[in-house]
Structure formats: structure tokens, C-alpha cells
Computed example of a mutant assay.
Amino acid sequence: MRVVNIAHPGGAEVMEYLDRPDPEIGVGQVLVGVTAAGVNFMDIGVRQGNFWREIPYPKTLGVEGAGRVLALGAGVQGFALGQRVAWVYAPGSYADKVVIPAASLVPLPDGIDDRTAAALMMQGLTASHFATDFYPVQTGDIALVHAAAGGLGLLLTQIIKLRGGTVIGRVSSSDKVAAAKEAGADHVIVDRDGGFAEEAIRVSGGEGVHVVYDGSGPTTFQGSLNALRTSGTLAWFGPVLGAPAPIDIMSLPKSIKIGYPSFAHHIRTPELLLSRSTQLFDWVLKGQLQVRIGREYRLEDAAQAHADMESRASTGKLLLIP
């Protein structure tokens, strides 16, 4: 099998495209032939040495993808050879084959192709958690979405609109405005330096927004707090870009609330994984949720995919195709 490994932490240059023996299948596991793997900021964090510290080197990167069942381990039920499946978290997904617990797989309906599924799972389930679980958007709510032209931002914007909310999208350059608007953003702010709060307050009628979804790192944290209205909520995520400074909780203004949402809490059981994924697939099949694939790379070009993501120049979801 072919994999993308790292032998030590570092920049994109530490990623190696290698031959490795095929993995062995254990009880309750499934061997899947990977047809598409998603690229996520989590993968960059693993490469830099910030995550998976308990896993020894060398490590195969990647967690998300879609493919076909090649073999079934003992005790596996509900899946068949050749069946199309997808997953949101299976370490080692930057490969042409991966062994995954059956409980971590979902079957793909005929109308969802493999590339769409691989582009949807991580960011779609994350966006679903943010807008339906962590802060259930209600009709009339105004949300500020950072990185609104990225893979997550595009999906989050659409789900907020499905729930009756208004979206103020923030993008880093003017060439990303069209993508954010196509996803349904009602207003788009172009800003790279964190000076967006005043405009967000103005657009929201002077009161500030109900919720901010901020995965842009420490530089936007204070602005996100400033953009909130009384009793507003900040959903802060994206640890790869660094944490904000320590907070004096008694200094927080306007009775605001701050939380750190994790998609894993949205799908904490196999039943929830299946139901939440089915909802995403249903939205796509009905034309209510559009998945934008920004660029596809060969598996051996994974380092370039990381470099493009880190440059913040990419729009939409990045995929690796073994």
C-alpha cells in the first residue's frame, strides 16, 4: 500500500510518500480502499507535532475520506464487500488502504459520490455541530462566520441559512467574496488584520451579532468578542493556529458566553454518527447543501496541499486522490 508518512514533526517537507505492507484487519474492523481523502487543519497540527503525541513515529497522516470495502474483520455486520463508505475520523487516511473500526463508518447513498462524501464528512459534521447543537441557530439570528470562503465556512454559512439565520462572512481577500456570497452570506467583510468588529456591529444594526464562529486564531479573538451583542456566544475553534491569551472571566463584557465546540461531541455514538451524516447527505441530495471542492491533488502531492492550505490562499475543500 502507499501512504503519506512523517518520521518527525516539521513543515510540509517532512511528509514522505512511501510503500508499506498492507495493514492487518482485527476484530470489528474493515479494510477500505481509499478513493478520496480530505485535507484538514487537524492534519497540519499532527504534522507540526501538536496532536497525536501519544502515537509513535512514523505516523501516517489524515483522518477523513471515502472508499470501498475490501475486506471484513471478524464480527463485522451491516457492511458488504464492495460497498461504498465514508468516515470522519480514522487516523492513517492519507493512504490507498486503511483499516477502520466498523462503528466509525457510514454507508454512502447512491446519489453521493466519493469525492463529495470525502469533502463533506469532517467539515460538514463540524458545521452541523456548530449551528444545530453547540449554538442552535434560530430564525432571525445574526451570525459572524470567519474564513467564510473556506470548506467549513461555506458549509456553515449554508446550514445557518437553512435554519433562518443571517450570515456576515469574513474573508481574507476580495477574490473570496464571490464564493462566500454564492454560499448564501448576506454580507461579506474583507479583512486580514482583525479590524472587522466595527463593520459587523454596523451591519447587524448597531447591537452586534448573536453568535461568532471563529477558527482564525488569536489575531481575531478580541474582535470576535467585540462583535457580539449582549448575551452573545463565541464559538472558538481551530487550535492549530494557536490559543488566545489567558482570560479574566470577570472582565468579559455584555454577559457573553465563550465555548470550544468539538465535532466529536456531535457524533459521540455510532447512532449519532449515522443520523448526523444521513442529515448531511439528505441536504445534499435535496440540493439544499452544496459542497465546493477547491482542488484535488494526487496522494503523492499531499505536501503541496498542506502548503496551499497554510497559505490561506485556497477556497473550498482540498482532497487527495490515491
Rank of each mutant, 00 (worst) to 15 (best):
A80T: 07
G238I: 07
E296K: 15
G205I: 10
D110R: 05
Q123C: 12
H8S: 09
A118D: 01
K161V: 00
L156E: 00
A119H: 03
G205S: 14
V106F: 04
V240L: 13
G67P: 02
V34P: 01
R202P: 14
I201Y: 08
P21T: 04
Q123V: 15
S128N: 12
E198F: 15
R20N: 02
Y260N: 15
G150H: 00
G208I: 04
S251D: 09
G165M: 00
A303W: 06
L234V: 09
T132I: 11
L228A: 05
I249Q: 14
T269D: 05
P253N: 12
N40C: 11
K317V: 12
L289S: 03
L155F: 00
L154E: 07
G10N: 09
S93D: 12
R84Q: 08
E207A: 05
I142H: 11
E64W: 08
I247M: 13
L299S: 02
G82L: 11
L289D: 01
L156T: 01
L319E: 12
T116W: 14
A80V: 06
G316E: 01
H266E: 15
K97I: 11
K254C: 10
S204N: 10
A131R: 04
I321C: 08
S275F: 14
I6N: 00
R20L: 07
L299I: 06
T166Q: 10
L125M: 06
L318N: 06
A307W: 10
L285T: 07
